Lab assay of single mutants.
Amino acid sequence: MTYKLILNGKTLKGETTTEAVDAATAEKIFKQYANDNGVDGEWTYDDATKTFTVTE
């Protein structure tokens, strides 16, 4: 399945997608991606749209 991440960081904003077997796997990938890019904030997930959002 395709999952989407919306980044609302102070210095980085944008979107990315990943292919993952489930939401938990996608979350791990996205949290590593956000960490690698210096984004740390409040996480939400919308199962209907398979979208994670992180807001600093």
Rank of each mutant, 00 (worst) to 15 (best):
1 M>N: 14
1 M>H: 14
1 M>Q: 14
1 M>V: 15
1 M>P: 09
1 M>R: 10
2 T>V: 13
2 T>H: 09
2 T>N: 07
2 T>L: 14
2 T>M: 12
2 T>F: 13
2 T>Y: 12
3 Y>S: 00
3 Y>A: 01
3 Y>T: 00
3 Y>F: 15
3 Y>W: 07
4 K>G: 04
4 K>T: 14
4 K>P: 00
4 K>W: 10
4 K>D: 02
4 K>N: 06
5 L>G: 01
5 L>V: 04
5 L>Y: 02
5 L>D: 00
5 L>A: 03
5 L>W: 03
5 L>T: 01
6 I>K: 07
6 I>R: 06
6 I>N: 04
6 I>F: 07
6 I>T: 05
6 I>L: 08
6 I>W: 04
7 L>P: 01
7 L>E: 01
7 L>F: 11
7 L>R: 02
7 L>M: 13
7 L>K: 01
7 L>I: 15
8 N>F: 11
8 N>A: 09
8 N>Y: 12
8 N>P: 03
8 N>T: 08
9 G>A: 09
9 G>L: 14
9 G>N: 04
9 G>W: 06
9 G>V: 11
9 G>H: 07
10 K>E: 08
10 K>R: 11
10 K>Q: 12
10 K>F: 14
10 K>T: 09
11 T>A: 12
11 T>L: 14
11 T>S: 11
11 T>N: 12
11 T>D: 11
11 T>M: 11
11 T>R: 08
11 T>I: 10
12 L>N: 06
12 L>M: 13
12 L>D: 05
12 L>E: 06
12 L>W: 14
12 L>A: 08
12 L>T: 10
12 L>Y: 13
13 K>M: 09
13 K>L: 07
13 K>Y: 14
13 K>Q: 11
13 K>H: 12
13 K>G: 05
14 G>Y: 15
14 G>F: 13
14 G>H: 12
14 G>N: 10
14 G>K: 13
14 G>Q: 14
14 G>R: 13
15 E>F: 14
15 E>A: 09
15 E>R: 07
15 E>Q: 11
15 E>T: 10
16 T>I: 14
16 T>L: 14
16 T>Y: 13
16 T>G: 05
16 T>S: 09
17 T>W: 15
17 T>P: 02
17 T>R: 08
17 T>V: 10
17 T>D: 05
18 T>G: 04
18 T>W: 05
18 T>D: 03
18 T>R: 05
18 T>L: 09
18 T>I: 14
18 T>K: 04
18 T>H: 06
18 T>M: 08
19 E>M: 15
19 E>S: 10
19 E>R: 08
19 E>K: 10
19 E>T: 14
20 A>H: 03
20 A>Y: 03
20 A>P: 02
20 A>Q: 05
20 A>T: 06
20 A>S: 06
20 A>V: 05
21 V>H: 09
21 V>E: 11
21 V>I: 13
21 V>R: 08
21 V>A: 14
21 V>G: 11
21 V>N: 12
22 D>F: 04
22 D>Q: 04
22 D>L: 04
22 D>W: 03
22 D>M: 04
22 D>I: 03
23 A>T: 11
23 A>E: 07
23 A>L: 10
23 A>I: 12
23 A>N: 06
23 A>W: 12
23 A>D: 06
23 A>S: 08
24 A>S: 11
24 A>R: 11
24 A>N: 09
24 A>M: 12
24 A>Q: 12
24 A>W: 10
24 A>H: 10
24 A>Y: 12
25 T>H: 13
25 T>M: 09
25 T>Q: 12
25 T>E: 14
25 T>Y: 08
25 T>I: 08
26 A>I: 02
26 A>F: 01
26 A>T: 01
26 A>Q: 01
26 A>S: 02
26 A>K: 00
27 E>H: 15
27 E>S: 09
27 E>L: 15
27 E>P: 00
27 E>I: 09
27 E>M: 14
27 E>Y: 15
28 K>H: 10
28 K>A: 13
28 K>P: 03
28 K>W: 11
28 K>F: 10
29 I>R: 07
29 I>Y: 10
29 I>D: 04
29 I>L: 07
29 I>E: 05
29 I>T: 08
29 I>S: 05
30 F>E: 00
30 F>D: 00
30 F>P: 00
30 F>M: 03
30 F>V: 02
31 K>W: 08
31 K>N: 05
31 K>H: 08
31 K>A: 06
31 K>F: 07
32 Q>V: 10
32 Q>T: 10
32 Q>S: 09
32 Q>Y: 06
32 Q>H: 09
33 Y>H: 05
33 Y>G: 01
33 Y>K: 03
33 Y>P: 00
33 Y>R: 03
33 Y>I: 08
33 Y>N: 02
34 A>Q: 02
34 A>V: 08
34 A>Y: 03
34 A>H: 01
34 A>W: 03
34 A>R: 01
35 N>I: 15
35 N>K: 15
35 N>E: 13
36 D>L: 12
36 D>T: 09
36 D>W: 07
36 D>V: 10
36 D>G: 06
37 N>R: 14
37 N>P: 01
37 N>K: 15
37 N>M: 14
38 G>L: 06
38 G>T: 04
38 G>N: 11
39 V>S: 03
39 V>T: 04
39 V>K: 02
39 V>A: 04
39 V>Q: 04
39 V>R: 02
39 V>P: 02
40 D>N: 14
41 G>T: 02
41 G>L: 03
41 G>S: 02
42 E>P: 05
42 E>M: 12
42 E>I: 15
42 E>T: 14
42 E>R: 09
42 E>V: 15
43 W>K: 00
43 W>F: 04
43 W>Y: 02
43 W>L: 03
43 W>Q: 01
43 W>N: 00
43 W>I: 03
43 W>H: 01
44 T>M: 10
44 T>N: 08
44 T>D: 07
44 T>W: 08
44 T>E: 09
44 T>A: 13
45 Y>Q: 01
45 Y>R: 02
45 Y>E: 01
45 Y>T: 01
45 Y>A: 01
45 Y>N: 01
46 D>F: 04
46 D>Q: 05
46 D>E: 08
46 D>S: 06
46 D>W: 04
47 D>T: 09
47 D>E: 15
47 D>H: 11
47 D>R: 08
47 D>A: 14
47 D>Y: 10
48 A>L: 14
48 A>P: 08
48 A>I: 11
48 A>H: 13
48 A>D: 12
48 A>V: 12
48 A>W: 10
48 A>T: 12
49 T>Y: 05
49 T>I: 08
49 T>Q: 06
49 T>K: 07
49 T>A: 06
49 T>P: 02
50 K>W: 07
50 K>I: 03
50 K>E: 03
50 K>F: 11
50 K>H: 13
50 K>M: 11
50 K>L: 10
51 T>N: 02
51 T>A: 04
51 T>K: 03
51 T>M: 05
51 T>H: 02
52 F>I: 01
52 F>G: 00
52 F>H: 02
52 F>A: 01
52 F>Q: 00
52 F>N: 00
53 T>I: 08
53 T>R: 08
53 T>G: 03
53 T>Y: 13
53 T>E: 05
54 V>T: 03
54 V>W: 04
54 V>R: 01
54 V>P: 01
54 V>F: 05
54 V>Y: 03
54 V>H: 02
54 V>M: 05
54 V>Q: 01
55 T>I: 07
55 T>K: 07
55 T>N: 09
55 T>D: 07
55 T>M: 07
55 T>F: 07
56 E>T: 07
56 E>R: 04
56 E>P: 05
56 E>G: 05
56 E>N: 05
56 E>Y: 15
